[in-house]
Nucleic acid binder design. Structure first.
Lengths: 142, 142
DNA sequence: CTCACTGCAAATGATTTGCATTTCA
DNA sequence: TGAAATGCAAATCATTTGCAGTGAG
């Protein structure tokens, strides 16, 4: 049920093939993205980048995130009440539970939801392009 | 399945009771909210307000929306790629399908989703405070 | 060598806020 | 009257963009 991240795609190779230049800042950002399993926002990625190479700017982080998103390499999530958070694409589809106390994100999958969504769409006469299913809650106290 | 809005709550009465002053701008905004069944954003509410009373400011619209939200009189929805949109509370719970071509919002209910959500939360050891379930799609072509 | 990419600072868009001035109860 | 609410303009926050300089291929 809970998804385990096992795939660590080689972004550089894929991007190069798509005609994108692998510059110094991009190398750093890509490294961070493939090393993490959490859902950092742009500022957090910027902080981690600067720790590796002090010359990187926040604009470049934003530009790179947009580029990677357009290339399908990452997903952007606009969870409630905060900036966009990113995760790399490539795993199987999943949805998110956000811990409203800590901001932690827990991934889960449910094929019944996918199926339910199709049912509803069909009934309403729509083709679904994508969906958002997010649970917001707090850890159950023992 | 598709929800029909039949309830038109008397906001003024409820607000008065809660110790909120019913001022001229608020009267106008409340009138707009109880007259509509769509999901306008702040700017749209502002436009409709100004058409009734040219003296109303956008700040007041925002302040009023925040107030009403805190009082539970309206719900705020941050659909993808746009400003917050509002709808009055009071009906039964429902989720939304957003037409990505027109921006139209279609409401639907599904008790199976509510039930599924509880199941997932239980499995993950969380108490759910609320959720977001939004479908984004386009009308099926014949 | 050239054009994509960068850093920086300024612009944006949605929303909020400080403050002096009304206005509801 | 006095606290609460308003309008306006300025501030915030996340994000984007213009531009002149830099560097990857």
């Amino acid at each position: 049920m809970v998804k385990h991240k096992t795939i660590k795609p080689d972004y550089e190779k894929a991007l190069r093939k798509a005609g994108v230049r692998i510059t110094r800042p991009r190398k750093v950002i890509l490294g961070i993205l493939s090393a993490t399993d959490d859902h950092p926002d742009a500022l957090e990625i910027f902080r981690r980048s600067v720790a590796i190479d002090p010359g990187i700017s926040l604009s470049t982080v934003y530009r790179t995130m947009k580029l990677l998103e357009e290339m399908g390499a990452i997903h952007r999530h606009a969870f409630e009440g905060g900036p966009s958070r990113f995760e790399r694409a490539g795993g199987e589809h999943h949805d998110h539970l956000i811990d409203i106390e800590t901001g932690d994100v827990i991934e889960f999958t449910s094929d019944r939801i996918e199926q339910l969504q199709d049912e509803i769409a069909k009934k309403l006469g729509y083709d679904i392009v994508h969906h958002r299913f997010e649970l917001y809650g707090r850890k159950r106290r023992a």
